[in-house]
Design a protein around this nucleic acid. Structure first.
Lengths: 303, 303
DNA sequence: ATTTTGTTTTTTATCTACAATAAACATTTT
DNA sequence: AAAATGTTTATTGTAGATAAAAAACAAAAT
């Protein structure tokens, strides 16, 4: 098959879930905009809802007849985009113990294991290469550089440069800028998390990402924003993978965040810089401690 | 056809050009290593050299009979890799006046104009997107963000952060490190350039790239190294494109480079930082001055 | 006159096939 | 035995085909 209609299925599920009984649905362009898809896809969704007897569709009239049942939804396996499937599958492999730095990556083999064509895998690898974890030998294979301590150090260095810059910019934002409200909201979320920390400390990673993203946005720089994707993906899989001492780590990070937020709100560049450094230094520590031991010592590609 | 044998042709030309009359050629693996290709490709080259009567090849015996003539070489158009062709073609379009920021990029159209398949164009665009000049709308087209003043400013900001960091690292390199010799050599090249500046100032761009690359290498950071590709490509096409005032610009840059080199050699972090800032500030100026006027304002193309 | 729906066209995402190239294996030569 | 050559196999790079999705165009309804 040339292409899976996962977008349609995913959007269908999304829309079906939010239907309210005995209501009228808006116009096609409006539905499309709500779902973030084209009108063609929106129409396909309406058509299927109509066929399933969930709505009655006649030109402008679109009446919800009943709520969808479990059976009306597409199963979750069918709604993942190919790109997400490959990313998950690939990251799991990269973070596993079998993955040794210096290892070759075989496009065809990867494609077969994931159950997809080679071109998608290929395009994924090209996109993924900007994360610095793999490298291409032209006319030949990819090489896994691996999640090594060198990687973590290089990542942390750039992160520090960028975040110091962004945090300084943040401190210069005019008082009317909406980022200040966003920061307040994030501060409240931190306090809420602390209220019942034992029950909620696992939610910290989401909040962490949100906080740093807000800061990086202040830089208004596409290269910094793009680099934040690298950090986000590394931390995302890193959190999933290394759960030891999560409670202590997160507790420390929350308290550092609160200092950092306070410093930002003071708009005192000295304080901002100090709080930022403090937090990033301990984030660096955390990342380094989670590197699989022995990684980096294997096969330092000579060729 | 599935694939062009441009690698073979390019390597053939390269090898034919360095043949010396009445000599014996080394073993196949040795030739392959010299050319940076696989033994299969090296053998194809030998086979063709033999067929053309340029060498006599019998197992281990490979005697050069005559030097290749003009006709023996493949024409230059046939030795460019597809990737290079696409890059050139695409950069020319991007830098041209017709290219307005916000414009859509059509894969199929690009492929047709370049005379190639869509997959190569697609993969090129994915790779190219890290330069921050284009952006993808998922399930839809690419958008040209364009060579605007925002782009130049964002690029210059990151460049300054990275180069200050790298230059500081450079200053800490042990005296035995070969980078110091490389720096000396580059210093000499600058002086040589100055000797007959009017005749040679156009060679400066090559030297400029070499100099900054040397500095960035000291950072030993893959993200900084990767980012330098962005700078290099922008400056490469920028130099080609904006030749006005080249002499003055280059004269100024050479003198700044010499200060910068001296500062590095002093290993005094204060001096290094000052010289680096000085030079990057004027590089930023230069880049900004070369932005096509009106870029960034999508609608009206002023006369 | 603008918005909505109906219909058609264009473009992207993905798969498959195949030549070029690399890599592996087998045989010969030193 | 080690290195070189000869031969076969595996993998990448690229083109072309096709379904999904977006976009454009046309007709109808407010």
């Amino acid at each position: 098959m040339a292409r899976q209609n996962t977008l349609f299925k995913e959007a269908y599920n999304r829309y079906a879930a939010r239907l309210k009984p005995d209501t009228e649905l808006p116009s096609e362009p409006e539905i499309a905009a709500e779902l973030g898809v084209s009108r063609s896809t929106a129409r396909s969704i309406l058509m299927r809802l109509n066929d399933a007897g969930i709505i009655l569709w006649n030109k402008r009239q679109k009446t919800v007849l009943r709520l969808p049942t479990e059976d009306d939804f597409f199963p979750k396996e069918e709604t993942d985009s190919l790109h997400d499937i490959i990313e998950r599958s690939f990251m799991t492999r990269i973070m596993s113990d079998e993955a040794q730095p210096g290892m070759q990556i075989n496009e065809l083999e990867l494609a077969r294991e994931i159950g997809t064509g080679t071109s998608v895998v290929r395009e994924f690898l090209i996109r993924f290469s900007r994360f610095g974890l793999i490298e291409k030998r032209p006319n030949s294979h990819w090489i896994l550089k691996g999640f090594t301590s060198e990687f973590a150090l290089e990542l942390a260095d750039v992160r520090e440069m960028f975040e110091l810059h962004s945090a300084a910019q943040f401190g210069r934002l005019p008082a009317t800028h909406h980022a200040w409200e966003d920061l307040k909201a994030i501060e409240r979320e931190h306090h809420a998390l602390l209220k019942d920390f034992d029950a909620h400390y696992r939610d910290f990673s989401r909040l962490d990402e949100k906080f740093h993203l807000l800061i990086h946005r202040a830089s208004n720089n596409r290269f910094i924003a793009d680099f934040y994707d690298v950090i986000a993906i590394v931390f995302h899989y890193h959190y999933q993978w290394n759960k030891a001492l999560a409670r202590e780590r997160n507790a420390r990070a929350v308290s550092e965040h609160l200092d950092y937020i306070e410093a930002l709100q003071s708009r005192d560049q000295q304080r901002i810089s100090a709080a930022c450094r403090q937090h990033l230094a301990s984030a660096r520590q955390t990342l380094l401690q989670s590197i699989p031991q022995g990684a980096g010592e294997v096969a330092g590609s000579a060729a």
